[in-house]
Design a protein around this nucleic acid. Structure first.
Lengths: 196, 196
DNA sequence: TTGCAATGAGACTGACCGGTCTATACCATT
DNA sequence: AATGGTATAGACCGGTCAGTCTCATTGCAA
């Protein structure tokens, strides 16, 4: 209906993700969305309300995006649990990537009782259960979903810090080992010859 | 020398970690440190300067803490690479734990050219090279250091979100598999009998 | 005792914060 | 043509932000 609300959400999503939630004021949002101040408060009870809307919308969009990419990259359901990390690599390479918006929100908002925390936690729950579905459809044990999510989060954190997509492939390799697709390396113990 | 500077850093470290950097104003710091406003600006050029000092101090403290804990928990150097995750679990269980201060800083500050980013990146580099040392001293391949760090970060992110220490043990199990200490599970492929 | 550097207390600046309020303009339905 | 909902523009509120400045007080050392 109201394209004003959509415009606000578009602008806020962009600014919140790029600069962080606390770093973006209501003034910046309404001016960039070209919207009157009162129109903002007609559609959102407060800035906090907008933050929740931002996270809920991002939850939906993120999950739809991964679902689509994974289907595209892996026609065979058996390949999908690992292909998640290829999709993740795509994401890492996308312009302006700045990590998981939900993890960032949690890092920023601090208060675990806040609505933002709740929305972020809900997203991660849904994401993990999606991973479980992928595993089930690949005829693998759903029990690995939490492990995959841990690798997913780890890759994201490392990628943001070092600004490359390589951690996604690193995580994929570990995941493959975990799921039994690859044999573990057999050469971990180094020969006892002195180094250098 | 000056205990004023130390007091400021003590208070700032606590507040920055607990509430986030942007959420803590100079006023709160100086009032809680019981220090005059000008004393603050005599010791730190700006709030950003204080943030860098906070991160550098935390870098030192964090690495010293892990080093000590790992030595304590694993007298045998061969056990130390995995015992890192037991130390991490201790950390997760500590009161008021709110994740990695450096990851949080990166999430909050956004600008990758900022001093805060630089300090955080430097910490992670040092931490990874410490992990490499542990691996070397355990006669394992240093190449795994990046993998261990990825698991470390993943466990941290998950732990903060769900508020438990369990992800540390999950990461440890994966690390053990990775380092070849454990055999991979042999039962991943579920029997083709229909579920439920 | 004198002198100096460090600290304290607090006023002050200009900018911005989230949020409220009034007044006006537009546009579709009746 | 009148009405009612939705938009706009922008003044305004109290509070907080980071940072500067002045001046009094402290404490130590020459």
């Amino acid at each position: 209906m109201s394209q004003v609300r959509e415009r606000i959400l578009d602008v806020a999503s962009d600014l919140f993700y790029r600069h962080g939630i606390k770093a973006v004021g209501v003034d910046a949002i309404i001016s960039q969305a070209d919207v009157a101040r009162m129109s903002f408060y007609r559609h959102f009870r407060s800035k906090d309300g907008l933050v929740v809307a931002y996270l809920e919308r991002r939850d939906e969009a993120t999950r739809v995006w991964f679902e689509k990419q994974v289907r595209r990259l892996a026609p065979n359901p058996r390949d999908r649990p690992l292909v998640v990390f290829d999709a993740l690599a795509l994401r890492f390479r996308s312009k302006g990537y700045r990590g998981c918006g939900f993890i960032n929100a949690i890092a920023e908002v601090a208060d675990p009782a806040s609505d933002a925390h709740g929305a972020a936690a809900a997203h991660k729950r849904r994401f993990q259960s999606w991973l479980a579905t992928l595993l089930r459809e690949a005829e693998l044990d759903e029990i690995f979903a939490a492990d995959l999510l841990l690798l997913f989060e780890g890759a994201t954190a490392v990628s943001v810090r070092q600004g490359t997509a390589e951690p996604a492939l690193r995580a994929k390799r570990i995941a493959a080992l975990l799921l039994g697709t690859l044999e573990p390396r057999r050469v971990q113990r180094r020969p006892s010859t002195p180094r250098r």
